[in-house]
Write a protein that binds this DNA or RNA. Structure first.
Lengths: 246, 246
DNA sequence: ATTTAATGTGTAATATTAACACATTATTTG
DNA sequence: CAAATAATGTGTTAATATTACACATTAAAT
């Protein structure tokens, strides 16, 4: 579509002109993205938080976010925030919900699009030198700044749901992992205990794991086998996942 | 929080000032809501569409939407659009996804928050006098204006998923309905055939239906019993719903 | 009185999920 | 080097949930 096309369209439609005028003038709103960045460390599900900008919220932590630029796609903005903070590309990212209460942010009307992402903590460990940032156990996240607690809760619930429907968990693990690590991951995310035999049976029956004939090293007990995630057969296994009720 | 509090905060934080300035000036974007309004009529799942504003898209249908006002909550904007078009209050509404590609709308940068809603067609039949509006069978929705096809597809998939997890379907039915109507609804939404006996067994076992001791009237065959939806026991039945795989 | 088009009902086979225990192995400790 | 430790690895049975399937019944229409 050329500029002339657009002009022609605009002249052709009164309604359209009205929209155009509104778009240009009064009805614009600041838009941001906020990312709930999950990582798995020390057998705990953690979230990356930053000290709040505002004096009033100085003691509180908040999610990582930024304003969306006028020429930037939503997802690009979310990726930008992630890349800036973690140095990682190619990150799992899912849009969750848009929060737009008029008074949600003290700086004025800011509507925010919330994403969560799953990252492999090992891959970017060196990047968090900044002491404004830290990884926090999700179980202890209770009082974030602004409406970020609500955003976090919503994203965490979404993750809990998704992980029972799709094999997302692998994004949080190193390339090679043991079944214990995998089960710990699920147990941390869902905050439940699972039966080891049934868990193993389930994953093996789904053909998602490739046995790479390596063993764990430097563990103070009998080492377990290491596996890799096998994406190939995933599509065939959409039906049931981990049989956990909420 | 008083105005002075805000002022104090703003002076206290350089970053905050920067945000404030950006919020006020350059980084604002037009925001809209678009609603995929579902209705159930003649045993078909339908969607309410409006003829497109734009000359270029004159032959195409589009979703109902409007710009969000600077002092309006997101959900309020969606409710407003629904109320304006259907005259109904107290409508089932769920936010689905926010679409924000820079070039998604020919009128310039407009980010849109998509909702779907479920309405009882009987309740508002009289309101659609406007010939710019019509109900269209979802099966024939193939070429909407702008990116509305993508929005529609996303919302329809969400509905298909949700209806297997929660008892939303009742929002589309009259207060009293037969099991045939209920099953037709599920079959239309999911675009599958279901076994009648198993369907009935499932719903009865969930204690969601109240037998009101009335029968269908004016049907050209043996009339069925009428039921009402019973919300009371819903929370207890979160686990399984209609056992359909995707 | 017959045809029509639906309602209403139960059981058996299959698949999935849940519960449950013991021998094995590498490491660490005494 | 023997014992203790802390994990891995493995199979079966019971309970539950899902699927497949057929015939008598009823009210209205012809």
């Amino acid at each position: 579509m050329t500029a002339d096309d657009i002009k022609a369209m605009l002249h052709a439609s009164k309604t359209m002109q009205a929209i155009q005028s509104e778009v240009e003038n009064t009805n614009r709103i600041a838009l941001s993205v906020d990312c709930v960045i999950f990582g798995f460390e020390e057998n705990k599900l953690k979230v990356l938080l930053i000290r709040s900008d505002l004096k009033k919220y100085k003691e509180k932590w908040s999610l990582l976010g930024d304003l969306i630029k006028p020429n930037e796609d939503l997802d690009s903005a979310a990726y930008r925030v992630l890349h800036q903070r973690t140095g990682l590309d190619d990150i799992f990212l899912e849009q969750v919900h848009t929060f737009g209460a008029v008074k949600r942010h003290p700086a004025g009307r800011v509507v925010t699009v919330a994403y969560y992402s799953l990252i492999n903590v090992e891959h970017h460990k060196l990047k968090i030198l900044d002491n404004e940032l830290h990884w926090q156990d999700v179980k202890t996240v209770t009082d974030l700044a602004f409406d970020h607690q609500e955003i976090f809760d919503t994203c965490y619930k979404r993750l809990q749901k998704r992980i029972q429907e799709h094999p997302l968990g692998f994004n949080l693990l190193p390339k090679k992992f043991s079944l214990r690590e995998l089960q710990n991951l699920y147990e941390s995310i869902l905050d439940i205990k699972m039966d080891r035999r049934n868990f193993r049976k389930k994953f093996f029956s789904m053909n998602l794991l490739t046995d790479i004939n390596e063993m764990e090293k430097d563990v103070p007990h009998r080492p377990g086998k290491l596996y890799q995630f096998n994406f190939k057969k995933y599509e065939k296994n959409k039906k049931t996942w981990i049989g956990i009720d909420f």
